[in-house]
Every structure is written in structure tokens, then in C-alpha cells.
Design a protein around this nucleic acid. Structure first.
Lengths: 236, 236
DNA sequence: GCGCGTTGTGTGACCTAGTCACTGAAGGCG
DNA sequence: CGCCTTCAGTGACTAGGTCACACAACGCGC
């Protein structure tokens, strides 16, 4: 929809159906046509099915990733099988862990998993650096993204080190619920979000239920009293 | 010492005794004379005594910080008074939290404290951006630093979420000890490094002592068997 | 509908880590 | 020497993580 606005003839190119994608990117939209062309030509389109692994420990990034559509969850996994979600990459964003490992020339320290079907553009480091060199807008875009993620990470550390688990579970539950107040997650999913164990989540949800704040089904939590839960989450 | 090498006449300038400091910076050493001049002129020299606060929550960064000498510890503090060290900035490095908050236009999410007497150069954002625009070496320097810190933060998260406290204490003890195997730290210091409580450290050190790995004095831990401690720290 | 494997949840026992409220020891200093 | 401040030790308790289960809900083939 809204494709009626598009004026220029679609340029057939290596990116096929996604030709012209830079136009939809914050920052990238204002690149010079030359740079834009260069980026679209050099980048390789990569597709991932929902649930598929995008990157993981042991691999090195082959280029900078820009997410064109879908969402990627980036998490860390312990030998014991516990998990914690570090951040999510949405369409229009790039992945900081990829950027960091690309520039530090290290292999990934975490895993990226497609949460939906995903289309991403992978730009070689040289192209990425050329863009950084030539486009102030692109620099802004990259630095702002990098900075916000870094701050997000500071927050994750703070939560994990100082935060109370009951409050964190309540908060995440509120975030994950849709407009009807239903979150389609298993206890295990919630545990993986927060870096805790499934049993801890189960016990806490039982307590929330006892207080009448939620109702539970298999793989499903309904917020019976979202306001109370949110109030509790903020009561730190 | 080794000042015999310095060929050019020292240029008197706003930075006084630190004139010409860009020459000692990785990456910055290769700036064009014009840029260098610009940076040295625009940056404001700031001095801090050991123990003094360099920045903290509530403040916004007034510019990018480059540490010319000394060391700064960056940590987060909980309302309850617990602390965790995120990273340290050494001479020749810049501070990522400052960079992140500068670009995201947010106030600091942690606190920076001078661990020794410190001299730092504070470059206004405009100057910083000009350097990024004009110098590939400076971009490399900044991106590499940013990337390494980010990876360090991933590691901190991993340690805190999945790591065992006894191993973390042993590891940090090994890091903090000098060549003679003596660490001049209080139990509280160790706790603040790792984001735990003083009592936890006390109990663990008592156990290490019982095993003959360390000897303790007031504000002082001697590694009686550094190898054993290191082996234990790595036995995860 | 029935059987059966898979996945999600409930629970108790146990251990580690963090909190609270103390005690007393070690050092600095007048 | 006495006094104050800082550091360290300890016990009781709570929160959170681990282990080993039991069992319920669903998916699916027949």
C-alpha cells in the first residue's frame, strides 16, 4: 500500500524486489545517489526464515548487517543452557554486535536468531567504511544507533546486577502483552528474556496469579489487571 | 625520559604543559597538522585528583573525553549502595559511556571516578565530528575503541548472568595482585568490582584462605598459591 | 475417539548469593 | 593511651538457581 507515491521507475538490480531499499532507511535516505548505488550494489541480500540462526559464536561477521524487514533477537547462552536477551534488531536498524565484532575482528560473542522471516543487507566492511567516510548522515545514523544500544546494554547490566527478579518479570510481561493484554509466551521464553531459570518464572507467575493480576494458559499469559502489574513493576 | 627524540620546538598553546599531546595518541598521531592543531586548540584540559568524580548520573557530557594520563574507573551504583565496575579508561583511551551519552544526548547512566590523578582533554562534539569526518585514522581509532568496549560489556553481562561468584572473585584477585602476588584491596573494593556484597567476598576469601591459596591482612590479600587460584578461576 | 510422544507446567529439596544486624579487631591520630 | 573510623567476621534469614521429578495439555497418526 501507499506505493502510489513512488515516482522514479524501479531500477532492476542485484537486490531484486528490494531494489531501492536505502530510500527507506533513516539516514540512508539522504545518501548521494552515487553512494546509494554503491551500497545497493555491494550489499548482498540475505534471507532467513523465522527461527533460523542469523549468526552465532564461532563465526566472524562477513559484513555489516542492515535489517530490511523482520526482527532479530540477539542473546547470550550459557553452557548450562540458560539464556539472556541482549537486544532486538528491528527493520531499519543495524546490529551492533555485528558492527563491534566486525571492527574488532573477533567472532561473535552471542547468537542472533530471526524472530520472523527476515531480509537483511550485508555490506562488506570496505563499503561500510566508505559510507562512513563520505556521508555525514550515515555517520550520524551509525553513531546514534551504536550509542543507543550501548546505553541499552548499560541498562541490562544494571537490571541484572541490581534488579529484583519479580519486578523484572512483571515488567517484561507488560512489554510482551498485546493490546488485549495477552502474551503468547511460555515460562521458558520469559526466563530466556531475563536470564533466569524457568522454575523461577513459574513460581513468580503462580504468585501473580494468586494476587489476581494474571491468568495462565499453556504458552499464554493474560494480564487480568495490567495496571496493577505495571504499578508493581515500577515499585522498585 | 626519552625526550631527546622530540625534534620540533614545543609550541606554546592553550594546553600548556600538554601541548602536542595528540602526538602520543594512537591514531591521533597521524592526523594532519591542521586537524591536530584544531583538536588541540578546541579541546579543554581538565584535571582531576585521585578519588575525584569525573562524571556521574544527572550530568550530560559536555564533550568527548580523551585521557592523557591517569586512569578512570567507570561503574554503576544501585540505590542500595552496591556497585559494579563496567570498565576502566587508561591513558591514551577515550570513554565510551561519554561518547554514547554525547551522541544519544542523554545524561550519564554511570559514574566515572579518577583512580589516580588524571589529565583529560575534553573536545566539543563539533570538533569530534569534524575529526570523524576528515580523518580515516581517527575514525578507525574511535570505532575500534568503541567496538572493544562493547565486546567487553558483552563479557560483563555474561559473567554477571551466568558466572559463579567464587570463580569471579578468584579471577579478579589474580588480576589485581602485583608481581609479588599482593593485592591492596579491601573486601568492599572486591565486592564493588564484581557487583556483589562485601559479606559474600569475606566468606569466599575465608574459604580460599582455608585452602591455603591466600593470606589476608587488613586491606591486603597475598596470593600464597597464585597458580592454584588461577587454575581454580579457570575451572568453569 | 484412542494411544503416544512432545512440550509446557508444578513442586519439593537443596544450594548459592544477597541482606540485615550485629560484634569486635586494626589502624590512625590527638 | 584512649578514641574514632574503617575493615572484617558471623549468624539468621530471604531470594534466586539447580536438580529431579510428576503430570497435564496438545499434536498427530491411525
Amino acid at each position: 500500500m501507499k506505493e502510489t507515491v513512488a515516482p522514479a521507475a524501479p531500477r532492476p538490480g542485484a537486490l531484486g524486489a528490494h531494489a531501492g531499499w536505502t530510500g527507506r532507511f533513516a539516514g540512508l535516505a539522504r545518501l548521494s545517489p552515487t553512494l546509494r548505488r554503491k551500497l545497493e550494489d555491494a550489499a548482498r541480500l540475505r534471507r532467513f526464515a523465522a527461527g533460523e540462526r542469523v549468526f552465532g559464536p564461532g563465526e566472524k561477521p562477513r559484513g555489516m548487517l542492515f535489517l530490511l524487514s523482520g526482527a532479530v533477537r540477539v542473546h547470550q547462552t550459557s553452557p548450562g543452557g540458560r539464556e539472556i536477551v541482549l537486544y532486538r534488531v528491528a527493520a531499519g536498524e543495524s546490529c551492533v554486535m555485528t558492527a563491534a565484532c566486525l571492527f574488532a575482528e573477533q567472532s561473535y560473542h552471542g547468537e542472533g536468531v530471526a524472530e520472523t522471516d527476515v531480509v537483511a543487507a550485508e555490506a562488506p566492511r570496505a563499503t561500510f567504511e566508505a559510507l562512513l567516510a563520505d556521508s555525514p548522515e550515515f555517520r550520524d545514523f551509525v553513531f546514534a544507533a551504536y550509542s543507543h544500544r550501548m546505553i541499552e546494554l548499560f541498562r541490562v547490566v544494571e537490571d541484572v546486577v541490581f534488579g529484583r527478579m519479580d519486578l523484572r518479570i512483571a515488567e517484561r510481561l507488560c512489554q510482551l502483552a498485546d493490546e488485549e493484554g495477552v502474551a503468547r509466551v511460555t515460562h521458558q521464553d520469559l526466563a530466556a528474556e531475563l536470564g533466569t531459570a524457568r522454575e523461577v518464572v513459574s513460581r513468580q507467575l503462580a504468585e501473580f496469579q494468586r494476587r489476581g493480576w494474571i491468568e495462565q494458559g499453556r504458552g499464554r499469559v493474560r494480564l487480568a489487571d495490567r495496571a496493577a502489574l505495571a504499578r508493581f513493576a515500577a515499585s522498585a
